[in-house]
Design a protein around this nucleic acid. Structure first.
Lengths: 163, 163
DNA sequence: TATTGTTATACTCTATAACTATA
DNA sequence: TATAGTTATAGAGTATAACAATA
């Protein structure tokens, strides 16, 4: 869990034009500090995501697809946007999930070029277990004092609010 | 930015044995709430990481390797542990980075089976730019009020403290 | 003409298993 | 015998380019 102090020193070592000037300097410093700390924790935690997905015999991306599909039917092109990947990629991804009877392709009736993706019953059941598993807080959260949890929740809700 | 409310309802819908009882209930609820919010923000943000790495002609994993290597020389087996992947994987990963003159393999003198990895000058330079780029806070952080940034920083530092 | 999804191709990441060279 | 790294192989994720069906 080092690398944090170092990140700060690298930040300080960057050329002046990369740093804020005058009145905004304190704000930028705080934002970078908070972000660097959060980024470190996140990366450390995200290392475990492939193993978490593997508990359900899913790849990380497949887990992500199931998660998105819970919101309702999605066009393949929409899924490509959500995954930030090329449409050709989604074809193979869905092929494998469909072969496992977790999702289904359904031709849209409005536009017959479009194929809508829906979870099968088995897919919805698997997704439910996956979501419950992902909701389990990791140790660094679980061991936080109540006041920190409350403050963190409030801050995150405010961050989501204005959109 | 939905899926959060839904996660909460799924949480509430889980069987009783998956929830804490009595005195601990409030704590677990807070932890799950905070974690679900954080997880959502993280996943949303992490979607951008491949594009960030691509700004430097790196794959996400290559960016991760450069980040780790900044701490000093690492044995290949240690890197495999950090990356949570098989050693055979690291061979190809390092092959490609070495072909680009970003890292070097050096045989350890203590144990001639071991190969230590070090950044080349070009690798260290690229890493510096990468780290500076990663330190730039995303909008949801950059637009936080100062008091939230201070509180978030304090909470994260406390979370890192005890290790 | 433009768009949705597929196919063909190529490269990276990943794991398992068998191998080598050291220890 | 055990460990560090490599090689061979296979499968999944990724992108680009060319294509078919539809709008």
């Amino acid at each position: 869990m080092n690398g944090l102090g170092e990140s700060h020193s690298e930040q300080a070592g960057r050329p002046p034009e990369a740093r804020a000037q005058g009145a905004e300097e304190a704000e930028v410093g705080l934002a970078q500090q908070a972000w660097t700390l959060l980024f470190e924790l996140l990366h450390t935690h995200m290392r475990n995501f492939p193993a978490l997905a593997a508990e359900f015999d899913l790849s990380p991306v497949q887990a992500h697809v199931l998660r998105q599909l819970g919101e309702g039917a999605l066009a393949m092109s929409t899924l490509a946007t959500y995954l930030s990947c090329d449409a050709s990629n989604v074809t193979g991804l869905v092929d494998r999930l469909e072969a496992r009877k977790l999702v289904e392709r359904r031709s849209s009736e409005q536009d017959r070029r479009v194929k809508m993706l829906v979870l099968t019953e088995a897919g919805a059941e698997l997704r439910g277990r996956l979501m419950a598993r992902m909701a389990l807080p990791p140790p660094f959260i679980a061991s936080m004092p109540e006041e920190d949890l409350l403050a963190l929740g409030d801050i995150m809700r405010r961050a989501l609010k204005p959109q």
